[in-house]
Every structure is written in C-alpha cells, then in structure tokens.
C-alpha cells in the first residue's frame, strides 16, 4: 500500500500570537514552529498501516517555503519513508492550495492520502476534502477510528451527539482527528536516519486564488471579571449574579 500524508508547519500551540505590521499575518519572530498536531495523527496512522501490512511506502508531502523541510524531516524521523517538498507560498484559498497538492498526488499512485483534520494556524479545515473532490476519490473527514482491510476502508467520526460510521473503497482520502491514535515521538535513530532518506523538491505555485486576507487582528480582551467569594458560601452570590447580571439562568 502506498500512502501519502500531507502535512503543514504551524506555530506551536503554546506560542503567543503577535500580529505583523502589515496586519494580515502573524509576526513569526521568536515563534517556535512545530508539525501541525493533527497531522501527527495522520503520520502515525500511515506508519502503523505500513507496519501492519508489512510492506508499502509512506510519503510525506508538504506545500510551503523551505522551512517546511524541517517538518518533513520530523515526519521522516517518525518513520515516513520519503518526503516531497512542493516549494512555494500557499495562499489563503484552500482550493488553490489543494490544486497544488493534487498536481503531485494525482499521478503518485497513492492508495491512501491522509491529512490532519485541520491546521491549528488558519483553521481552514478544507484542503483534505477538496483534494478528494479534485481527485474524484471517496473522502471521510475528521476520523477517530480507522480500519483498512483489503480494498475497504471503515471509519468512525465524531459528530454532534454521537458517532458516525462510514465505509468506502481504496483509493481514498481521509482527514484524521484526535483519538485516532497516539503519535510516536521520533526516536533518536529515526532522527539520524531521516538525514539519509530522500527529500525531493519541486517548485510549485498557486493559481487563481479566490480568497484574500483583509486583516488579522487580536481578539478584543474580555473585560475583567470578579471573584464573588470563597468556598461554598459564595454560591448564593454567584447564582444571584448569573440570574440578574448575566441573565443566563
């Protein structure tokens, strides 16, 4: 089985966000970048599926500037076999970015293309489903369980108030949610081995983007609240505040 995992490089979730002067993007100075946490579920799923099958190939694919190579090497260190760097600047239009990924994926002979459910920077949550649509392949998003047997894929995803089961045939596109697995840490041997694994670079560029960032700003601060009291004795005061001030009871 040949599996592609499309990954992104994002600011660490503990990072404090500072808006760059132009007001449309963050200031990356001093920000630590990490592999997108949801992509780690996809990487783990790919590596585990290959281990389970005993053969096949796993490929990490990233579209972005040169800095994504570090993220690709993290994927290689975890156990991915090789990496493809589509070198260029992604746009704010998920569909335009999806087309760039498809330019590589369509002739890659992949049985499975995996994504993280979303990237914790732009929260776009669309590229995976769009890639599936462009490739005319079945797609399940935000899966929390996965079983691949023969040519059949069984998934479970969490929806409001329950879980939804679905099946489809390979080749397919899946996006992975938390709960699917526990991603492994790259081992030290893996980190050393990553240096020797192939990382192919192909220039790429977006065309026909239909989304433009007008502005990026910090959210308004929440007005300061107050301590209504200490211990159980403060419960009546809280209830009073919720009823007559906040009017939420």
């Amino acid at each position: 089985m040949k599996i592609a995992v499309c990954i992104r490089r994002v600011p660490d979730t503990t990072a404090k966000i500072v808006i760059a002067a132009a007001g449309t993007a963050i200031d990356p100075a001093g920000v630590k970048f990490v592999p997108n946490p949801y992509d780690e579920f996809a990487l783990e799923a790919a590596i585990a599926l290959k281990e389970q099958a005993g053969d096949g190939e796993t490929v990490a694919v990233a579209f972005g500037p040169d800095s994504v190579q570090e993220t690709l090497r993290t994927a290689l260190a975890m156990g991915i076999d090789r990496a493809v760097h589509l070198q260029g600047e992604p746009s704010a239009d998920g569909l335009a970015n999806a087309r760039v990924l498809v330019s590589h994926l369509k002739d890659g002979g992949y049985d499975l293309v995996l994504f993280g459910k979303l990237a914790v920077d732009d929260y776009g949550q669309q590229t995976g489903a769009m890639v599936a649509e462009l490739l005319e392949r079945p797609c399940a998003t935000a899966i929390a369980e996965l079983e691949v047997q023969g040519g059949t894929v069984k998934v479970m995803r969490e929806i409001e108030g329950g879980t939804e089961g679905a099946t489809c045939a390979l080749p397919a596109v899946l996006t992975c949610d938390k709960g699917l697995n526990n991603p492994r840490l790259p081992s030290l041997k893996g980190i050393m081995a990553a240096k020797k694994k192939p990382l192919d670079v192909t220039p790429a560029s977006v065309e026909g983007a239909q989304a433009t960032v007008v502005s990026l700003a910090l959210p308004p601060e929440r007005p300061a609240g107050r301590i209504v009291g200490e211990g159980a004795a403060a419960v009546p005061a809280l209830l009073e505040a919720l009823t007559s001030e906040a009017k939420v009871l």
Binding site: R73, T74, A77, L185, P186, S187, L188, I191, M192, K195
Partner: peptide
C-alpha cells in the same frame, strides 16, 4: 543543528 534540536525536542517531550 536541526538534528540536535530534533533530538532535544524528542527527549523534552518524552
């Protein structure tokens, strides 16, 4: 180096 940082980050996370 990138590997040195990767090693550090792996152990830190563990």
């Amino acid at each position: 180096s990138e590997e040195e940082r990767a090693v550090r980050d792996t152990v830190r996370q563990w």
